[in-house]
């Protein structure tokens, strides 16, 4: 049964009860969507009268930026407006809006199939948008050339060594006038894998591959990190190291959007729960 009370066309599981629409308070519905434990302010675009369904549509802004004040990329801002994504003839979400500035982190939560990975792919233009716009301000090049993707697959060739994989990515991802932040060997050292530089990726464990994939993000300066289940297969120590790397990236003025089911250890992160309306 489709909802007829607002612009959303997302199917409700039961017949919408008019009283429910009115009695449901903003806090009830939005608390499920935005983790209020951190000092976030949210603004509601549709006003109080339609709070139940305004849940699909909100803006997130961190009240205090998590970066060093003298960082040059302060004008960096990722603006996502009215995003509507259709996958396999099913509407994943619509009127999704958020805005991230330098140093912000957004954690995407939600059940399996809620559209977390699809949202990350859509941000890179890998999925067509049904509606909406994605803009990155503060950079001359489009978002896709300013974003690192750490997908569910590691993006490593099994026949090449860890060092060869990273050398390849360093050359292919870096802009023509850019210089690498660190060498492949240094990047591997940062994820505590310096000893495995010459080992073919085929012989690495799942967790080690994940760390090599993470090392890829350290070599080339790209402010937006899109992470899909980044700590999958990582042991406890590596998860801590991952959290440190992410905080360093944010302090340097980068932003992180991560889809995860587990706590990533990101301080001051905003949580966005997808698919709460289904």
């Amino acid at each position: 049964m489709a909802c007829n009370r607002c612009v959303c066309k997302i199917r409700a599981t039961s017949v919408p009860d008019p009283r429910k629409h009115r009695t449901k308070t903003a806090d009830d519905s939005l608390a499920r969507l935005i983790d209020n434990s951190v000092q976030n302010r949210y603004t509601n675009q549709w006003g109080r009268s339609q709070n139940f369904h305004s849940a699909h549509s909100f803006a997130i802004r961190l009240s205090r930026p998590f970066i060093d004040s003298e960082t040059p990329s302060l004008s960096l801002r990722l603006l996502v407006e009215n995003l509507h994504l259709i996958r396999n003839e099913r509407s994943l979400f619509q009127s999704l809006s958020f805005s991230l500035g330098a140093g912000d982190a957004l954690v995407l939560a939600g059940a399996n199939g809620a559209g977390k990975s699809s949202l990350l792919r859509a941000l890179l233009g890998l999925l067509p948008l049904a509606h909406g716009s994605i803009t990155l301000t503060g950079r001359d090049t489009p978002l896709v050339e300013n974003a690192h993707l750490l997908g569910t697959a590691d993006g490593l060739k099994a026949a090449l060594s860890a060092g060869e994989n990273l050398t390849f990515w360093s050359r292919v991802l870096r802009a023509d006038d850019g210089s690498p932040l660190v060498s492949p060997a240094q990047a591997l050292a940062q994820v505590n894998l310096a000893a495995l530089e010459h080992t073919p990726v085929a012989y690495l464990s799942a967790g080690q591959r994940r760390r090599v994939a993470l090392a890829r993000l350290l070599m080339v300066e790209r402010p937006v990190w899109l992470l899909d289940e980044p700590v999958n297969a990582l042991d406890a120590a590596s998860q801590l190291r991952f959290a440190e790397i992410c905080q360093e990236h944010r302090r340097a003025g980068g932003m992180i959007i991560a889809a995860s089911h587990v706590d990533l250890g990101l301080s001051d992160a905003t949580t966005l729960t997808l698919g709460a309306n289904r």
Binding site: R121, L124, G125, L126, V144, E145, A147, H148, L149, G151, T152, A153, D154, G155, L156, K157, A158, W169, V172, L173, R174, A175, D176, R216
Partner: peptide
Amino acid sequence: EDDGVLDVLHTSIL
């Protein structure tokens, strides 16, 4: 596509 390289190649400068 299988090992996720194609997705990352999408973000390359090429």
